[in-house]
Amino acid sequence: MFRHKGKSRTLKHNLQLAACLAFVAGIVNVCGFFSLQILTTNVTGHFAHFADEAAKANYTAAWLSVAYVAAFFAGAFFSTMVTEVVSRRSGRLVYTVPIFIEITLLLFIALLNNRIVVLHAHVVACALLFAMGLQNALVTHVSSAVVRTTHLTGLFTDLGIELAQLFFYKKPEQKHRLTGAIKLHFTIVAFFFLGCITGGYVFSSWKIKTLLLAVICLIIAALYDGLKFGVVRLKRKYRRGAAMRPGRYLYSTRRPPQT
């Protein structure tokens, strides 16, 4: 899900990545809006809010909108910096570190007292926006810009384009590409909504601790990815070991290479 990149990456890998992280983004979106009344998964609305407050000469509120945008940007920048630095030292940990940082940040916020969350709403909002910027950059990097999970505007645009193109592109390879893209974008939209609905129901009882659901999803995804990668490595080692055993030609119909 996280480790495959480039030509080795398939639609299945992208669907797994999209489903998990879009669900997480949906939960964060609801938690941020319900507890803080602030958008915490995208920055489009903050630009409009900045213009509105600046026109009213409410410069403090206007600059808060700038801070929210900067927090999302900082998360994306930090995620990419960490990915590039870690990739030069250990390829196995390249995507584990950003995910661990996101888990730690969301867990810390989830364990805060509700009174503290309200008193420091702007700081908490910036922390959530930082986490979502980090996630969006990570997903973009892993999927080579195929998957985006924190906002839906572009996804609905892509879905509209691809559904319209189905009426005009009839070649098998074109249909295959379009149906794959539609399936991926629909999965992101569906799981983002599912995360919002789940988070909305749970929030009435758990409040900000609803973020623990997002933390659990990220931990499961990281463990699944790590275990699956470990199993693949063990299989490869076993095959290499079997191929190098002295008696491997004993029951083979092929002759061993002449030395």
Rank of each mutant, 00 (worst) to 15 (best):
F2K: 01
R3Y: 13
G6S: 06
R9T: 04
L11K: 08
K12M: 07
H13W: 11
N14Q: 13
N14Y: 14
Q16F: 13
Q16W: 12
L17Q: 02
L17E: 00
A18F: 07
A18E: 00
A19Y: 06
C20Y: 03
C20K: 01
L21N: 00
L21P: 00
A22D: 00
V28E: 02
N29G: 03
V30K: 02
F33E: 05
F33W: 15
Q37P: 14
Q37C: 15
I38L: 03
T41K: 06
T41Y: 12
N42L: 11
V43P: 07
V43A: 04
F47C: 06
F47Q: 02
F47R: 02
A55H: 06
W63M: 10
L64S: 13
A67F: 13
A76F: 11
V82M: 02
E84D: 14
V86R: 05
R89M: 10
G91W: 13
T96H: 10
F100C: 10
F100P: 01
I103W: 11
I103P: 07
L105G: 02
L107W: 15
I109H: 08
A110L: 11
L112G: 03
N113P: 11
N113Y: 11
I116M: 12
I116P: 04
V117R: 03
V117N: 08
V118A: 12
V123C: 05
V124Q: 00
A125Q: 07
F130A: 01
L138S: 02
T140D: 09
T140L: 08
S143L: 04
S143H: 04
R148E: 02
R148K: 10
T149H: 11
L155H: 15
F156S: 00
F156C: 06
E162W: 15
E162T: 12
L163P: 03
L166R: 06
F167Q: 06
Y169W: 07
K171Q: 11
E173G: 10
Q174Y: 13
H176F: 10
L178D: 02
I182V: 09
K183F: 15
H185W: 15
T187N: 15
F191S: 01
T198E: 05
Y201P: 01
V202I: 14
V202K: 08
F203R: 04
S204R: 14
S205F: 15
I208V: 15
V215Q: 02
C217W: 08
I219M: 12
Y224P: 01
G226V: 03
F229G: 01
V232N: 09
R233H: 05
K235I: 05
R236P: 04
R239W: 15
R240D: 13
G241Q: 13
G241P: 06
A243Y: 15
M244H: 14
Y251N: 04
Y251H: 06
R254K: 14
R255V: 01
P256N: 03
P256D: 00
T259D: 09
